[in-house]
Simulated scan of single mutants.
Amino acid sequence: MKNVLPDHVQEWVLHTVNSQGKIVAIQQLLGGMSSVMHKISIQSGEVLTDVVIRQVDNEEWLEEEPDLALHEAKSLEWAIDVDVPTPNLIAYDQSGAICGVPTVLMTKLEGVVELQPKNMEEWVDGLANALAKVHQLNADHFPYTYFTYQNLSTLEVPSWSSYKEQWRQVIDIVKGPCPKTRECFIHRDYHAANVLWTGNKVSGIVDWVNACKGPAGIDVGHCRVDMAQLHGVEYSDAFLTAYQKHAGELFLYDPYWDLIALIDILFGPPEVYPGWPALGVKGLTNEIIAHRLDEYMLSLLKRI
Rank of each mutant, 00 (worst) to 15 (best):
P274F: 07
P274I: 09
L266Y: 05
D264W: 13
P274T: 03
Y273G: 00
L250W: 14
I265R: 12
G268P: 12
D258R: 03
L250S: 15
G275A: 15
W257F: 13
L279A: 05
L279W: 07
F267P: 01
Y256S: 06
A278E: 14
D264M: 10
W257M: 01
L252I: 13
P255D: 10
E271M: 03
Y256H: 12
L279M: 13
Y273R: 01
L279I: 06
D254C: 09
G268S: 11
D254R: 06
A261V: 10
P270F: 08
F251L: 10
D254T: 07
G280C: 10
F267R: 09
V272T: 10
I265L: 11
P270V: 13
P269N: 15
L266H: 05
Y256N: 05
L262F: 05
L250R: 15
G275M: 11
L259C: 13
L259R: 06
A278N: 07
P270C: 14
P255C: 07
P270W: 14
G280A: 05
L252K: 14
A261P: 14
P274Y: 08
D264E: 14
G268I: 10
W257H: 04
W276Y: 13
A261L: 10
P255L: 04
P274E: 11
L266S: 02
A261E: 08
P277N: 02
V281D: 12
A261W: 06
I260M: 04
I263F: 12
I260A: 00
E271V: 04
V272A: 08
L279C: 04
L266Q: 13
A261S: 15
L250D: 15
P270N: 15
Y273K: 00
Y273V: 00
W276A: 02
D264R: 11
L266G: 03
V272L: 12
G280P: 09
Y273E: 01
W276H: 02
V272S: 07
